[in-house]
Amino acid sequence: MRIFDPHIHMTSRTTDDYQRMADAGVKAIVEPAFWLGQPRTSAGSFADYFDSLVGWEPFRAAQFGIRHHATIALNPKEANDPRCREALALVPRYLDKDSVVAVGEVGYDAMTPEEDEVFAAQMAMAVEFELPALVHTPHRDKARGVDRTLAVVKESGIALDRVVVDHLNEVTVGAVHDAGCWMGFSIYPDTKMSPDRMVEILRGHGLDRILVNSAADWGRSDPLLTLRTGEAMLAAGFTDDDVDKVLWRNPVEFYGQSGRLDLADPGEQDATFEGSSILRGGS
């Protein structure tokens, strides 16, 4: 099984996780910019974070043969903090980087006027930089949040098949399917979706325009729930080719729209330096 996790926050994960992911067949990942649990207090903090998403984290991933890409945006939660708002001006510069394959995570948290403004501004950036968009949906008041999200997406003028609306569930998948956007599902140990429920959604809605991710971060989460979902699909009678479509070809198709996806084996390029291993510890 080859796996492309289209949404995982590796900044919060250890090298043990990278090793387990590589052993499980994860060969490519996209790490969206989001919040870090601890609130940031300045734009400079975002600059360091964005630098890490296009610098240190791909370097770390490459040591395990995993190709790392990023999406960049000011997240909706911190869009509400005036001290962080200046980070919006940093975003365009990062959207030009080779490994940035979408604008994201944009969207709503508490659906404030500040979030409206930052969401719309960043959808305009997606259009300007010809990048897809990764849209987070709120964990509270989700159904109405998804409707409002789709209205902002349509208003932006972006092609709807260049947008993934993420963290969907049984209640919210229909509206996104009907809108023509990609449907993202985060598989979690307790909250969001489980592998078995995901299989039921695949049965009901088919395999097209579906992205399955672990969204693993600093909370209780599991970077191998993509694998577990693939296993649950097989147990439910889906074929190996079906699993490959959901866990590999779909994310390649979606993020490939950026024109920047580079899936060459990083083990050949980065993990060795002129023949020397760099897998030993740092200094």
Partner: peptide, 12 residues
């Protein structure tokens, strides 16, 4: 010395 430590060939 950092090159030696990290295994970077000294020809660089």
């Amino acid at each position: 010395l950092k090159c030696v430590f990290m295994g970077v060939p000294l020809k660089v």
